[in-house]
């Protein structure tokens, strides 16, 4: 102890104290710092990193090297992870060719890659996040309210039972049959292509859930159709066409068949 106190005025004493203090602080931090958070952060940044790599290969030619957009594709800053999950998850992006509207097709990326892309795009600017299963699952929703909301907000383009319909100049509202509830939710949230969006501020999350439940009720393979033979459920045009072409055609065919066969004993 005497030795230590004798050298307390040594020119290097301050340095030694400083080193001890730094080591103690670092050691304490290592002991108490939330290790999991650090790991999650690095996983997140890894996903963003991977997403950026996928983006550079698959998306950057149209949307710009850092998502700023070019004349071939819009800016992706602030569109959010939900938009990426919808566009890439339904196969619309990457687009096959320019045109009036990019159609749904088989998804090119798997869900893990889509999540990485979404993480990268979400890092460019704040936007809607991918909804949780609890948000879009139709369990426990009010189907009748969903029907009313669907008719007010969606039916004008997507048809009253979600069969889809035509828009101007080659654009169309696609059918909603067989669409993943998650993607329906994301479409309402983000408004892909020419579809307007329906943010939570004007259409609360509960309403979106009700709409998804209504669609599951009327527009799925299990949907009940009391009349049967819906002919696509597209309304009077397809029904009239069917009645005039096939209904009347069948009557004419039967009439011709009856009259063409002679009842005479000797066939001429």
């Amino acid at each position: 102890m005497k030795k230590l106190s004798a050298r307390r005025r040594h020119p290097l004493a301050a340095l030694v104290v400083l080193l001890f203090a730094l080591a103690a602080t670092g050691g304490l931090y290592a002991a108490f710092a939330p290790a999991e958070k650090a790991q999650a952060d690095s996983a997140q940044s890894l996903a963003t990193e991977e997403g950026k790599r996928l983006y550079s290969v698959g998306c950057a030619s149209c949307h710009g090297t850092s998502g700023q957009g070019t004349h071939n594709g819009p800016s992706l800053v602030g569109v959010g992870a939900a938009a990426v999950d919808f566009q890439v998850g339904t196969g619309r992006m990457p687009a096959q060719q320019p045109g009036a509207q990019v159609p749904r097709k088989k998804a090119i990326y798997n869900q893990a890659q889509i999540d990485q892309l979404a993480a990268y795009i979400a890092s460019l600017g704040p936007g809607p996040a991918i909804p949780s299963k609890q948000q879009y699952s139709p369990d426990g929703a009010d189907i009748a309210n969903g029907g009313q909301l669907f008719r007010t907000n969606c039916a004008q383009c997507h048809n009253s039972t979600g069969k889809g319909g035509a828009l101007s100049e080659g654009k169309f509202a696609p059918t909603l049959e067989g669409v993943d509830p998650k993607h329906i939710y994301e479409a309402m949230l983000t408004g892909p292509q020419n579809m307007p969006n329906f943010p939570d501020s004007t259409m609360p999350a509960k309403d979106k859930k009700d709409i998804i439940a209504y669609l599951a009720q009327v527009d799925s393979s299990k949907a009940e159709s009391p009349g049967g033979l819906e002919l696509g459920g597209l309304g009077p045009v397809s029904e009239g066409l069917f009645a005039w072409v096939f209904g009347l055609g069948a009557l004419i065919t039967v009439a011709i068949w009856v009259a063409a066969r002679t009842a005479k004993a000797r066939k001429s």
Binding site: T152, P199, T202
Partner: peptide
């Protein structure tokens, strides 16, 4: 009045690209 929620609308509720009745 927003037809979905029956609540009066505020300007900040309505984003660019949204459609409300």
């Amino acid at each position: 009045i927003n037809q979905n929620t029956n609540e009066p609308l505020r300007p900040e509720d309505i984003g660019v690209g949204s459609l409300t009745f």
